[in-house]
Design a protein around this nucleic acid. Structure first.
Lengths: 236, 236
DNA sequence: GTATGTGAAGTAATTCACAGCT
DNA sequence: AGCTGTGAATTACTTCACATAC
């Protein structure tokens, strides 16, 4: 049994002006981030369907299964091309591999975790990354006592080695799990080391250049939102 | 040090049609959920500012600090009333207490955790709830071996006792941390026990009546989205 | 007949811009 | 002069509806 466990939560930060995401596709139209998120849901459903041995599905059926309208399904797919057959629907195998390609699930990405406190340690040993094509390849901390320690199968390195290690190991995702005060500093270091994508667990509003994808993670806001809905619930 | 840690992530599920949120205010206008989420950020910033001894702030300054436009700040506040002074800005203490009231942070809510596996256990011992006015008041599991076990200061009860306990302890938030297959079943039980608000950690599309607030939590989708952005990044 | 793909219509959220208050 | 509060304009996302393809 686990004795000490931590949990955290992701919140898609919507208003960050410093982040303009490169979501253009084939024909230069912007794809809503929500659409991409739904594509992953379609993909998962398709994988399930494939397992069951079904080979074909209509947008209406697929939508039904994931609580979306048929039009939404078609529009979402439409951002990336034409995958269906008029009158017949979509071939599940084909659509599945098309989505895997579009969504980058056919590739693996190296991840660096910065900060080896509770949360950082959690991330280092979190088993879910691999299933999503992510490989934790390095961990950093500024605390001398933590450096050299092994967690999972990687060794914690000093933050000053970050730039070198990130380039050497071809790491493209940085996860920030440090206190809020130094989060921006860490972000800057990651960015100057050439990282493309930051998952930020610190409750701090980070500023990043437009070509870096920032995703903020904030359990507190989610929990808090719950209290709002309770406080303002109309007793129907 | 922690040996075993888990982490999870919240994703605001946007397309769920079954969930129509009661976000009406004073004058019956709908308030975007994103606005509410931002209000919490403003509130946190105000608390910081109050600590530093600042008493007044303009929408532009506040916005600056949290990466929002001045107009956004004013619009968000405008949904709930008029808190500012023309030409002078907002009194920090006043705005702080107004927001605390609006957002329900002045109340405490009882929470039930269903499912005492890794994630459920994590939640039971997660120290962050209290800071947000949430109190874990009960935990349930269907596994006979887990029943009776103590985690933190609460005892795991059989799922069949749920309805009783929820009413007895005046619990208004249910957290679902069970496998996807039984998530809907658990949700139905929670709802019929009169729960108002569900935080769902199972990767399952739950259906709930309109008067129940459902919030889905899904680390996978967040992680996945990262790969998409890497896969489709324009190298600029 | 059946289901796609896609402009057009509709709905929602954000940003603009300025009248009016202090 | 400075800043709020708020309609109007803009931008973004979703739903409709139908011409088109099988």
């Amino acid at each position: 049994m686990l004795d000490n466990i931590l949990f955290f939560a992701i919140l898609v930060k919507k208003g960050t002006k410093s982040v303009k995401i490169v979501t253009d596709t084939m024909n230069n139209k912007k794809v809503p981030e929500s659409a991409i998120s739904r594509l992953f849901v379609y993909l998962r459903e398709l994988i399930e369907l494939a397992k069951v041995g079904i080979h074909n599905i209509s947008s209406a059926e697929l939508g039904e299964r994931v609580n979306q309208s048929d039009a939404q399904v078609r529009k979402d797919l439409g951002h990336f091309g034409q995958f269906g057959v008029s009158g017949a629907g979509y071939n599940i195998e084909e659509l599945k591999s098309a989505l895997e390609k579009i969504l980058g699930k056919d590739k693996a990405w190296n991840v660096a975790v910065v900060g080896a406190g509770h949360l950082g340690s959690a991330l280092l040993t979190y088993p879910g990354f691999e299933a999503h094509g992510l490989k934790v390849a390095a961990a950093f901390d500024s605390d001398a006592r933590k450096i050299g320690r092994e967690l999972g199968d990687i060794t914690i390195q000093p933050i000053d080695d970050m730039a070198k290690a990130i380039k050497a190991k071809n790491i493209s995702i940085g996860i920030i799990a440090v206190p809020a005060k130094i989060a921006q500093e860490v972000a800057d270091k990651l960015i100057s080391a050439g990282i493309g994508c930051i998952l930020n667990f610190a409750p701090a509003g980070l500023t990043v250049p437009e070509n870096v994808k920032l995703k903020d993670v904030d359990l507190s806001r989610e929990l808090e939102t719950l209290s709002y809905f309770l406080a303002n619930k109309k007793s129907v």
